[in-house]
Amino acid sequence: MLRIHFSAGDLSRTRIAEDPDPLWETVLSLHQLRERRRDPVLDAWRRRTCPRGVRALRALSPLMPPRGYFPDFLTPAAGSGGFECGIDAVLSTPRRQLRTELRLLSARNALPGWVGHLADGEVSTVRRLGRALRQYHASVLEPAWRDITSRVEGDRSHRTGTQGRLGTEAMLRAFAPTLHWQSPVLCADYPVERDVHLHGRGLLLVPSYFCRRTPVALLDETLWPVLVYPARPPCPQAPTNPGTRLAPLLGHTRAAVLQVLQRPCTTSELARWAGVSVSSASEHASVLRRAGLVASTRQRHHVHHTLTPLGSRLLAGEPTN
C-alpha cells in the first residue's frame, strides 16, 4: 500500500500534468512490451514496433526491469517540458546520483558490465544511453503519440474540470477505485508498504497511457512528489440504441444520462448529448443525485454535473460496497 500524506497547503499545490511525459511513457511502455499478462488494448501498438525499437529495447531493458525499482534519473521532472528537455536532464544526471541509484538497481538485478561505466559517468556510455532513448522514442512512441496525447488530454480535462468546479478533494475522491482519498491521506495499491509525506510541496499527478494497473511514484523523497496513474479511456458517446446493461435497472434514458456524465457537463450539454429536453435532463440528474450517483454544483447561471465515485463504479460494473 502506498500512502501519500497531505499537510496544510498541499491540496492547493496539487495539480494534473499538462501533457504526456515522454520519459515516463518510455519506461512504462517498455514494461508493457515485456509484460507476460498483456493488455489486449495495446496489441495493435505492440504489432507496430519495428526492429530498430527492439534493438533499443535490448539496450534499455537492464535499466528498466518490469518489476520493482528502476532509477529515478530516467524520469526527471524536466521531461514535462518535452522529450529533448528530458533527455538533456537524463544525460546531465550528477555522478553521485547515477552511482546511488544504479547501486540500488544492482541489489536485485543482474546488470551488464556497461552499467558500471554508466555509474561512473563515462561520457561514451552516457551518450550510448541517450542514443538508445532517442531510437526507442522515434520507433516505438512517436507512431503512437497522437493516441497517447489524446488519452492524456481527455483524462486531464476530466480531472481539472472536477477540480475547478468541486475542489481538489472532490477530484481526488473521483479517482476511485484506482486511488482512495481519506483526508488527509491518498492511498493506492502498491507492491510494497510505503509512506510519502508531501510537507507542503503538493503533488503532481501524471496521467499515463501505458500505466495500466497500479500507480507509480518516485523513490527519492527529496525529489518533487510525482504520482503517475492510468489515464482513463475516452468518454463514449451516449448510445444511439440505449440497450446497455444498466437500462433494465435505471431505464434507458437514465442509463444514457449516467453514461454521458462520465465527462462533467452542464444541464444543457447533458440534454444535448443524451438527446432529451433540458427539463428532462435536469429531472434525471436530480434522481441520480438523490441516489448518490451524481454530484451537481451551481456556478452563476449554470449547473454542472459529474459522476460520484459510486456512480463511476456502478457504470464500470465494479463492486459498489
Rank of each mutant, 00 (worst) to 15 (best):
S61N: 03
D39S: 14
L166K: 04
R263Y: 07
E101A: 06
D120L: 15
H5N: 06
L105Q: 04
G164T: 11
A107V: 07
T160A: 08
R263D: 05
A107E: 15
V126T: 15
A132M: 09
P177N: 12
V54C: 01
P225A: 08
V226T: 12
I148S: 04
M1Y: 03
A110K: 14
A59T: 14
T320H: 06
E84C: 07
R52H: 08
P225R: 00
R46G: 02
E283T: 12
E35H: 11
S12K: 12
W24Q: 07
R300P: 00
P242E: 08
E142W: 04
T214M: 11
P319S: 13
A188H: 01
P94F: 07
A217W: 01
E153V: 13
G9I: 01
H305Y: 05
T49R: 14
R289C: 13
Q32Y: 03
V192W: 05
L118M: 03
I148C: 07
D155V: 03
E35D: 14
R290E: 15
R173P: 02
L249D: 10
H180P: 00
R159Y: 10
L249S: 12
T125A: 11
G82I: 09
P40Y: 12
S282N: 10
P184F: 06
A110L: 12
V196N: 01
R127M: 11
H302L: 11
R290Q: 13
A119W: 05
L57K: 02
D220Y: 05
L288F: 08
F175L: 12
G292I: 05
L261M: 01
A77V: 10
P309N: 04
E84L: 10
D120P: 01
T26L: 15
R232A: 15
E25M: 07
H199P: 00
T75V: 15
V228K: 01
R38Y: 02
Q182T: 15
E269K: 05
A110F: 05
L91S: 06
H301I: 06
R146S: 12
V257G: 01
H304R: 06
D39I: 07
S7D: 13
V196D: 03
R290C: 11
T244W: 07
H302E: 14
L30R: 00
T240M: 06
R67W: 06
T306E: 14
L102Q: 04
S279V: 12
V192N: 04
W181P: 02
V192D: 11
T125M: 04
D155E: 15
G68Y: 08
G167K: 02
G317C: 07
L315V: 08
P76V: 03
T253Y: 03
T49I: 15
R67M: 07
E25N: 09
G161Q: 03
R15V: 09
P207S: 10
D220R: 10
E283F: 09
H304C: 04
A44L: 13
Q135W: 12
H301M: 09
T253F: 02
P225Q: 08
P264M: 05
L111G: 08
A295I: 13
R201T: 06
R263F: 09
S280F: 04
F210N: 11
